[in-house]
Simulated scan of single mutants.
Amino acid sequence: MQARIFETLKTVLRARKITYAELARRLETSEPTIKRVFAARDDKLSRIVEICDALGLALEDVVAQAKRTTVTPVALGDRIEAQLAGDPSLFNFFILLHDGMPVEEIARQFKLDPGDTLRMGRKLERLGLAEVQATGRIRLLLEHPIQFRRDGPLHRALMKINLDFVRQVFLAQDTEAAAFLTQSRRISGDTARHMMTELRRLNRELSEMARQDQLTLPTSELKSYKLSLAWSHVKFSSLLTIEGK
């Protein structure tokens, strides 16, 4: 989401013929600093608010404009998927980064040292998926949602992650923020298509709310959640067994 906000701000600068130098003067900072901020397309919320104020814009208007941008999932391609499939730790590191988990939190949860995370960052850099900056910070170059091929090189890894997740939720106690929900009903084709539309809408809503949370809240207030949905006509004879005498 931040990348799209900065793209919106760049559009405003071009439309008003305001240079980075002029924006830097209004913010009482240096032009190289402004160039770095826009090149990284990532900064703290206070900086974004300052830029909006300097341009006479309301943050909510900029966010609303950025949200109008259609975000189309992108495919990584078989070559990159195959290399990630051949290095499960790198693939897991990548998907956590892409979900917005800070490197420091990944390192804490998986007991990685700075050398480990730097090596993984360099590997992602060679794949064209990330940039390791001079400070050692790893910046992903791909903000768009990713559409992994379920029949591609990462097939087994994706299946394992999702089945293990469903198993964990199934075995755990339901809470106000987490639960395993399932039901089967005999319904019409129209109802089935309506439910699929609603489930896709829910998935998009979750994606947008996650971007807003990551933009406005400190990392310490965020936790990782996962949604796995399966909706389809079911042939019970492939799932159940009923034996006669």
Rank of each mutant, 00 (worst) to 15 (best):
M159P: 04
L154S: 07
H194K: 15
D116H: 08
L90H: 11
T33D: 09
L217N: 08
E143Y: 04
H233Y: 15
F93L: 01
G56S: 12
G136Q: 04
T33Q: 09
A178F: 11
T216A: 14
E176A: 09
E7V: 03
G115E: 03
E131H: 11
Y225V: 01
Q83N: 07
S30F: 14
T33N: 14
E50V: 01
T175F: 03
S30L: 13
T219K: 07
G189H: 02
K226M: 06
S220A: 11
R26V: 02
A82M: 08
D99E: 08
V12R: 12
T175K: 04
E22T: 09
E208P: 05
A85N: 10
I146Y: 13
R36M: 13
I51F: 11
F6D: 00
L45F: 12
F93Q: 00
N162I: 01
F91S: 05
A134V: 07
V234H: 09
E243T: 14
V12P: 04
I95C: 10
G136M: 08
S30N: 15
L129G: 00
R119T: 03
M209G: 10
I138P: 10
F91M: 02
H194R: 15
A58C: 13
V62E: 02
T241P: 13
H233S: 11
K160S: 14
K35P: 03
T72V: 10
A75F: 01
A75K: 05
P153L: 02
L163M: 11
L129R: 00
V234A: 05
L158N: 06
K111V: 00
L240E: 11
A40G: 08
F6Y: 12
E125Y: 12
N162A: 04
F91V: 05
S30Y: 15
E28Q: 13
S188K: 03
F165I: 00
E125M: 14
L217W: 09
G121Q: 06
L55V: 09
L57S: 00
E221R: 13
D213P: 05
A85I: 03
R122I: 07
E131L: 10
V132S: 02
E243H: 08
L142R: 06
D213K: 07
V74N: 02
H98M: 00
T182Q: 15
A24F: 02
D164M: 05
D116W: 00
D116M: 01
N162D: 14
K10M: 03
P145Y: 15
L206R: 09
Y20N: 07
D164V: 11
I34D: 04
T182S: 15
R47C: 11
F38N: 01
P32G: 12
L90Q: 05
I95F: 14
L59T: 06
Q183Y: 15
Q65M: 04
V49P: 01
G77Y: 12
K17Q: 03
A134Y: 09
L227H: 08
L97H: 12
